[in-house]
Design a protein around this nucleic acid. Structure first.
Lengths: 143, 143
DNA sequence: TGTAACAGGACAAAAAAGGTCACATTTGAC
DNA sequence: GTCAAATGTGACCTTTTTTGTCCTGTTACA
């Protein structure tokens, strides 16, 4: 019931890309050093984000990473689900897998409601919102 | 980012106790069979619930388990936190552990808000509510 | 005293998380 | 064309967590 470290790393990296988007492309090595994320591991995480269509990558000299979409069109939920998969699936009492029979499964709808309000908030804020409304950018410039 | 199986088992067991509270005491073996939960594992889970003060146990012949409080005074959140600990703690971006400096950590408050709305819903419904507003009781009588 | 119940600790197997490495591939610059 | 800079990919390893099992108490009642 906690965000994985991979998920946390992914958010850091995405915020980094959002904050530096006007300076062009970023390299994995840079992000790794700035945020103290093991480089090999970060590479894996960014691969997932690329496959999910959130990050655009280019290889070769001068290559690197950028956001695949404008920062105001990527939400926290996008990032988390790209790494962890759909949130909260399959939590029900009927047994393994199928809980369509919500008539007698009393927890079904409560869980659904809780999940919904949770994800609604995570998708209400874009990366752009997050970077703008804080000292994030200044702070990590210094570091 | 999912409820553990132990948490799911715990909810089943607590609903069972809530639904049978008027018939008196229940045994672990019965709950285990009714809900297809491995008995040894269930014993461990119920120990946690007992320690958390949600379940009252008595040993010896004629012993067994009951809810420690009326079913309308136990919430889903109570049950889940008894098994999994406080939800979502320590998930933040500042680094390992301490995120008091929410001035520059842009995700802090979003996360906090999401966590709050999630837990609010989980504690808005008691076991009694859940058992009454469904065919739960009938269904598991038959099984 | 025997039996039916829970309590608790040690331990084991399996799965997931976190991380590393070697090598492949692409790209641009010389 | 070759070299170096960058990501892509798969195999692998280690540690931690989850999911149990088992054995030995302990309590209580008949």
């Amino acid at each position: 019931m906690q965000l994985s470290r991979a998920g946390e790393y992914a958010i850091r990296a995405m915020l980094h890309l959002a904050a530096t988007s006007d300076e062009g492309i970023s390299q994995i090595a840079t992000i790794s050093k700035t945020w103290a994320i093991p480089e090999s591991f970060l590479r894996k995480i960014l691969q997932s984000l690329t496959k999910a269509g959130l990050v655009a990558s280019s290889r070769g000299m001068g290559g690197g990473l950028t956001l695949a979409r404008p920062a105001d069109q990527i939400t926290l939920l996008d990032v988390i689900e790209a790494i962890e998969g759909k949130i909260f699936l399959n939590v029900c009492l009927t047994g393994p897998g199928n809980c369509e029979s919500s008539t007698w499964c009393p927890v079904h709808c409560v869980w659904h409601e809780a999940q919904r309000s949770f994800t609604d908030i995570l998708k209400s804020k874009s990366l752009k919102d997050l970077v703008i409304n804080s000292d994030f950018k200044e702070h990590f410039q210094i570091t």
